[in-house]
Amino acid sequence: MTRIAITLGALLVAFAASAVELSDAQRADIEERIKPVGEVCMQGDSSCGGAAAAAASGPRSGKDVFDSACMACHSTGAGGAPKMGDVAAWVDRIAKGMDTLHQHGLQGVPGTGMIAKGGCMSCSDEEVMAAVDYMVENSQ
């Protein structure tokens, strides 16, 4: 029994040693196959090695923000939103002034379906105001 255990132990050591003897290319292939799909980096953590995605070169246009964030409600009228281009729906709103419309775009309108920034939390204040301007320009 002891002889068998020693033989099996020797075989196990030999097998383990052969598994460790990988070429650099083999190691690289294995590392590539088992690497995580992505990583989480908290804002302010300098150990992450930089931004995960390239930032836009500048603020998005009003049209871009409208197309990505506002269109769902302001092109269909969902939740009572005034449709862009519907002059009658916008005339009283426009009469309140751009400051009020910008404030509504940024902070939402209590008691309606309009939430702060239209739900676009990645939009800057300037981008939201540009989207409001775009809708007003196309609704007069």
Rank of each mutant, 00 (worst) to 15 (best):
K117T: 03
G62C: 07
V20Q: 06
D125N: 14
C123A: 15
S122H: 08
E32S: 07
L12A: 14
K83H: 04
G113V: 12
W90A: 11
A52L: 13
V132H: 06
T7Q: 03
F15D: 00
A17I: 14
I115P: 00
G97E: 03
V87M: 09
G77H: 11
L11H: 00
F66G: 04
P110Q: 15
R93N: 14
S124Y: 01
V65K: 00
H102Y: 13
M135I: 12
C73D: 08
M135S: 04
A53T: 14
A95Y: 04
A17C: 14
D92T: 11
M129G: 03
A89Y: 09
R3M: 03
G50C: 08
D29Q: 13
C48N: 09
A88K: 15
S57A: 15
D92V: 03
K96H: 02
C73M: 07
V136I: 13
C120M: 04
V20R: 01
R60A: 11
M121I: 10
Q140C: 00
F66L: 07
Q43P: 00
M121P: 00
F66S: 04
K83L: 12
A78K: 02
A25F: 01
F15G: 07
A55N: 10
A69N: 08
V136S: 07
D45Y: 15
E32L: 04
S61W: 01
K96S: 09
G50S: 07
S18Y: 06
I34R: 00
S139M: 03
R93S: 10
G77C: 12
A51E: 10
P59K: 07
G119D: 03
S47M: 13
K35F: 09
D86A: 15
D125E: 14
I94N: 05
W90M: 12
F66C: 05
V128T: 08
A25Q: 07
A81L: 13
R60S: 06
E127Q: 08
V136L: 04
Q26L: 10
L106N: 09
A95K: 15
A78E: 05
K83N: 07
M121D: 10
C73R: 02
P59Y: 08
L106C: 05
V20S: 05
G38W: 04
M98C: 03
F15M: 05
D86P: 07
R60E: 06
E31G: 02
G80W: 06
A5F: 01
M129V: 14
T112F: 15
M84N: 00
L106W: 10
V87S: 11
G9H: 05
V87P: 02
V109H: 00
G50I: 08
M129L: 06
D29T: 11
T100M: 10
G105P: 04
A81H: 14
P110D: 15
G49N: 02
G119R: 02
L8S: 06
K35V: 12
A52C: 10
A16I: 08
R93K: 15
S23C: 06
F66T: 05
A19Q: 12
A25C: 00
Q26W: 07
F15H: 01
A54M: 12
A55R: 14
D86L: 11
V13W: 11
A14R: 09
T76C: 01
L11F: 09
M1A: 12
E127P: 06
D133F: 09
N138Q: 08
